[in-house]
Amino acid sequence: MASYSFSAIPISSSTSQPSHGNCSVFSAILPRHLNLYNSFIGCKLTVRLLSSSHLATKHRPALATVQFSLPTPKPKSDSSAKVPKWSARAIKSFTMAELEARKFKYPNTGTETLLMGILVEGTSIAAKFLRANGITLFNVREETVNLLGKSDMYFFSPEHPPLSEPAQRALNWAVEQKLKSGEDGEITTTHMLLGIWSEAESAGHKILETLGFDDEKAKELAKYMDKDYDFNLK
Protein backbone atom coordinates (compact mmCIF):
# COMPACT_ATOMS: atom_id res chain seq x y z
CA MET A 1 0.00 0.00 0.00
CA ALA A 2 1.24 3.52 -0.79
CA SER A 3 2.46 5.75 2.04
CA TYR A 4 0.49 8.80 3.26
CA SER A 5 2.10 11.96 4.58
CA PHE A 6 0.30 14.48 6.83
CA SER A 7 3.39 16.30 8.15
CA ALA A 8 7.17 16.28 8.07
CA ILE A 9 7.13 13.07 10.10
CA PRO A 10 7.06 10.06 7.74
CA ILE A 11 3.97 7.86 8.16
CA SER A 12 3.63 4.47 6.50
CA SER A 13 0.41 2.47 6.26
CA SER A 14 0.20 -0.73 8.28
CA THR A 15 -2.40 -2.79 10.10
CA SER A 16 -0.04 -5.26 11.83
CA GLN A 17 2.07 -2.85 13.90
CA PRO A 18 1.09 -2.46 17.57
CA SER A 19 0.30 0.94 19.00
CA HIS A 20 2.52 2.53 21.68
CA GLY A 21 1.63 5.36 23.99
CA ASN A 22 -0.95 7.99 23.24
CA CYS A 23 -2.16 8.14 19.66
CA SER A 24 -3.15 11.22 17.72
CA VAL A 25 -6.34 11.61 15.72
CA PHE A 26 -6.43 13.46 12.42
CA SER A 27 -9.26 14.35 10.06
CA ALA A 28 -9.07 14.45 6.30
CA ILE A 29 -11.51 14.67 3.42
CA LEU A 30 -11.42 11.16 2.01
CA PRO A 31 -14.12 8.53 1.47
CA ARG A 32 -13.14 5.96 4.15
CA HIS A 33 -11.20 5.26 7.40
CA LEU A 34 -7.55 4.20 7.67
CA ASN A 35 -5.28 3.14 10.53
CA LEU A 36 -1.74 4.35 9.84
CA TYR A 37 1.35 3.38 11.79
CA ASN A 38 4.06 5.96 12.41
CA SER A 39 7.32 4.02 12.58
CA PHE A 40 9.25 7.11 13.70
CA ILE A 41 7.36 7.69 16.95
CA GLY A 42 5.90 4.15 17.26
CA CYS A 43 2.30 5.30 17.38
CA LYS A 44 -0.74 4.07 15.55
CA LEU A 45 -2.62 7.00 14.03
CA THR A 46 -6.36 6.74 13.61
CA VAL A 47 -7.33 8.88 10.64
CA ARG A 48 -10.96 9.86 10.31
CA LEU A 49 -11.73 10.24 6.66
CA LEU A 50 -14.86 12.28 6.03
CA SER A 51 -16.84 12.23 2.83
CA SER A 52 -17.72 15.47 1.05
CA SER A 53 -21.42 14.65 1.48
CA HIS A 54 -20.91 14.55 5.26
CA LEU A 55 -19.34 18.01 5.19
CA ALA A 56 -22.11 19.34 2.96
CA THR A 57 -24.72 18.53 5.61
CA LYS A 58 -22.83 20.53 8.19
CA HIS A 59 -24.31 23.85 7.03
CA ARG A 60 -27.85 22.68 6.35
CA PRO A 61 -29.21 23.33 9.88
CA ALA A 62 -28.12 27.01 9.72
CA LEU A 63 -29.79 27.50 6.34
CA ALA A 64 -32.94 25.85 7.61
CA THR A 65 -32.93 28.13 10.66
CA VAL A 66 -32.78 31.23 8.48
CA GLN A 67 -35.62 30.04 6.27
CA PHE A 68 -37.82 29.12 9.24
CA SER A 69 -37.10 32.49 10.91
CA LEU A 70 -38.53 34.36 7.93
CA PRO A 71 -42.34 34.42 7.76
CA THR A 72 -43.81 31.87 5.36
CA PRO A 73 -46.53 33.18 3.01
CA LYS A 74 -49.91 31.50 3.50
CA PRO A 75 -52.07 31.63 0.36
CA LYS A 76 -55.87 31.57 0.50
CA SER A 77 -57.28 28.06 0.63
CA ASP A 78 -59.19 28.58 -2.62
CA SER A 79 -56.18 30.01 -4.46
CA SER A 80 -54.16 27.99 -6.94
CA ALA A 81 -51.46 30.67 -7.19
CA LYS A 82 -47.89 29.69 -6.50
CA VAL A 83 -46.76 30.58 -2.98
CA PRO A 84 -44.05 33.27 -3.21
CA LYS A 85 -40.68 32.73 -1.58
CA TRP A 86 -38.12 35.10 -0.18
CA SER A 87 -35.46 36.07 -2.69
CA ALA A 88 -31.85 34.99 -2.21
CA ARG A 89 -30.85 38.61 -1.50
CA ALA A 90 -33.59 38.93 1.12
CA ILE A 91 -32.46 35.72 2.84
CA LYS A 92 -28.84 36.88 2.83
CA SER A 93 -29.91 40.30 4.17
CA PHE A 94 -31.72 38.56 7.02
CA THR A 95 -28.66 36.42 7.76
CA MET A 96 -26.47 39.54 7.84
CA ALA A 97 -29.02 41.21 10.13
CA GLU A 98 -28.63 38.38 12.65
CA LEU A 99 -24.86 38.79 12.43
CA GLU A 100 -25.13 42.54 13.03
CA ALA A 101 -27.30 41.91 16.10
CA ARG A 102 -24.60 39.59 17.43
CA LYS A 103 -21.87 42.16 16.70
CA PHE A 104 -23.79 44.77 18.69
CA LYS A 105 -24.51 42.15 21.38
CA TYR A 106 -28.24 42.84 21.16
CA PRO A 107 -30.67 40.19 22.43
CA ASN A 108 -32.92 40.51 19.36
CA THR A 109 -32.76 41.00 15.62
CA GLY A 110 -34.60 44.32 15.39
CA THR A 111 -35.68 46.62 12.57
CA GLU A 112 -32.40 48.51 12.96
CA THR A 113 -30.33 45.37 12.31
CA LEU A 114 -32.64 44.33 9.44
CA LEU A 115 -31.76 47.70 7.93
CA MET A 116 -28.06 47.00 8.46
CA GLY A 117 -28.43 43.56 6.91
CA ILE A 118 -29.85 45.07 3.71
CA LEU A 119 -26.87 47.42 3.48
CA VAL A 120 -24.31 44.69 4.29
CA GLU A 121 -25.71 42.48 1.50
CA GLY A 122 -25.37 45.56 -0.67
CA THR A 123 -26.40 44.37 -4.16
CA SER A 124 -30.18 44.73 -4.00
CA ILE A 125 -32.26 47.61 -5.30
CA ALA A 126 -33.15 48.54 -1.71
CA ALA A 127 -29.48 48.78 -0.70
CA LYS A 128 -28.56 50.79 -3.79
CA PHE A 129 -31.51 53.12 -3.27
CA LEU A 130 -30.45 53.77 0.32
CA ARG A 131 -26.86 54.52 -0.67
CA ALA A 132 -28.03 56.80 -3.51
CA ASN A 133 -29.88 58.81 -0.88
CA GLY A 134 -26.89 59.06 1.44
CA ILE A 135 -27.94 56.30 3.84
CA THR A 136 -24.87 54.14 4.44
CA LEU A 137 -24.05 51.23 6.71
CA PHE A 138 -21.69 53.43 8.73
CA ASN A 139 -24.40 56.05 9.29
CA VAL A 140 -26.99 53.44 10.28
CA ARG A 141 -24.62 51.83 12.78
CA GLU A 142 -23.79 55.25 14.25
CA GLU A 143 -27.46 56.22 14.60
CA THR A 144 -28.26 52.83 16.13
CA VAL A 145 -25.75 53.43 18.93
CA ASN A 146 -27.07 56.98 19.41
CA LEU A 147 -30.65 55.69 19.67
CA LEU A 148 -30.27 52.39 21.50
CA GLY A 149 -26.88 52.70 23.12
CA LYS A 150 -24.25 50.01 23.50
CA SER A 151 -24.93 46.60 25.00
CA ASP A 152 -23.25 45.28 28.12
CA MET A 153 -19.76 44.15 27.10
CA TYR A 154 -20.26 40.90 29.04
CA PHE A 155 -23.52 40.03 27.30
CA PHE A 156 -23.42 37.52 24.46
CA SER A 157 -26.21 37.31 21.90
CA PRO A 158 -27.64 33.91 20.96
CA GLU A 159 -26.44 32.37 17.70
CA HIS A 160 -29.72 33.35 16.04
CA PRO A 161 -31.09 36.37 17.95
CA PRO A 162 -34.91 36.12 17.82
CA LEU A 163 -36.88 38.79 15.99
CA SER A 164 -38.17 41.70 18.02
CA GLU A 165 -41.92 42.32 17.76
CA PRO A 166 -41.52 45.35 15.41
CA ALA A 167 -39.13 43.35 13.19
CA GLN A 168 -41.57 40.44 13.06
CA ARG A 169 -44.40 42.79 12.08
CA ALA A 170 -42.19 44.41 9.42
CA LEU A 171 -41.49 41.04 7.80
CA ASN A 172 -45.15 40.03 8.09
CA TRP A 173 -46.04 43.29 6.31
CA ALA A 174 -43.63 42.38 3.50
CA VAL A 175 -45.29 38.99 3.07
CA GLU A 176 -48.80 40.47 3.13
CA GLN A 177 -47.95 43.11 0.53
CA LYS A 178 -46.57 40.47 -1.79
CA LEU A 179 -49.71 38.35 -1.46
CA LYS A 180 -51.98 41.37 -1.95
CA SER A 181 -50.19 42.36 -5.15
CA GLY A 182 -51.06 39.07 -6.83
CA GLU A 183 -47.83 39.42 -8.83
CA ASP A 184 -45.51 36.52 -9.62
CA GLY A 185 -41.98 36.52 -8.30
CA GLU A 186 -40.31 36.60 -4.92
CA ILE A 187 -40.55 38.65 -1.74
CA THR A 188 -37.65 41.07 -2.07
CA THR A 189 -35.43 43.25 0.09
CA THR A 190 -37.55 46.18 -1.11
CA HIS A 191 -40.55 44.57 0.57
CA MET A 192 -38.37 44.15 3.66
CA LEU A 193 -37.21 47.78 3.68
CA LEU A 194 -40.71 49.17 3.20
CA GLY A 195 -41.87 46.82 5.94
CA ILE A 196 -39.35 48.45 8.27
CA TRP A 197 -40.67 51.88 7.22
CA SER A 198 -44.25 50.75 7.96
CA GLU A 199 -43.31 50.33 11.64
CA ALA A 200 -43.44 54.02 12.57
CA GLU A 201 -42.38 53.54 16.21
CA SER A 202 -39.55 51.13 15.49
CA ALA A 203 -35.85 51.92 15.76
CA GLY A 204 -35.35 51.17 12.07
CA HIS A 205 -38.02 53.70 11.02
CA LYS A 206 -36.60 56.38 13.33
CA ILE A 207 -33.08 55.83 12.00
CA LEU A 208 -34.28 56.04 8.38
CA GLU A 209 -36.20 59.23 9.21
CA THR A 210 -33.15 60.79 10.89
CA LEU A 211 -31.06 60.02 7.81
CA GLY A 212 -33.52 61.67 5.42
CA PHE A 213 -35.82 58.84 4.29
CA ASP A 214 -39.47 59.88 4.03
CA ASP A 215 -42.84 58.87 2.57
CA GLU A 216 -41.96 60.33 -0.84
CA LYS A 217 -38.84 58.20 -1.05
CA ALA A 218 -40.87 55.20 0.10
CA LYS A 219 -43.32 55.76 -2.77
CA GLU A 220 -40.45 56.06 -5.22
CA LEU A 221 -38.86 52.84 -3.98
CA ALA A 222 -42.22 51.03 -4.11
CA LYS A 223 -42.01 51.18 -7.92
CA TYR A 224 -39.28 48.51 -7.64
CA MET A 225 -41.23 46.39 -5.15
CA ASP A 226 -41.16 43.17 -7.19
CA LYS A 227 -37.53 43.45 -8.32
CA ASP A 228 -34.40 42.73 -6.35
CA TYR A 229 -31.79 43.85 -8.82
CA ASP A 230 -31.59 46.47 -11.54
CA PHE A 231 -28.44 47.12 -13.55
CA ASN A 232 -29.56 50.70 -14.21
CA LEU A 233 -29.99 51.62 -10.55
CA LYS A 234 -26.63 52.65 -9.12
Rank of each mutant, 00 (worst) to 15 (best):
D214Q: 05
Q67F: 01
K128I: 06
A90H: 07
S164G: 01
K217W: 12
L115M: 04
P61V: 05
I11V: 15
G185T: 04
A90C: 09
D184V: 04
S181L: 08
A28M: 11
R60D: 06
M96H: 07
F68C: 01
T123M: 00
E183C: 08
N232C: 01
R48L: 06
H59C: 02
F104T: 00
K92H: 04
D214T: 02
L45D: 06
R169G: 00
K223G: 02
D214H: 14
E112Q: 14
M1V: 09
G185D: 05
Q17P: 00
E186N: 11
R102N: 09
S151T: 10
S69L: 07
S69Y: 02
G185E: 06
G149F: 14
K223C: 01
E165M: 11
Y224K: 08
E209T: 09
V140C: 13
L163M: 13
Y37G: 00
A218Y: 15
S3K: 12
G134L: 06
G21I: 10
S12N: 09
F155I: 03
T111S: 05
Y229P: 02
P61E: 11
S79W: 15
E98Q: 14
W173P: 00
L179K: 12
K85H: 03
K217G: 04
S7P: 00
A174W: 15
S7K: 11
A28Y: 14
T15M: 01
A8K: 13
S79M: 06
A200G: 01
F94S: 01
V175M: 07
Q17H: 07
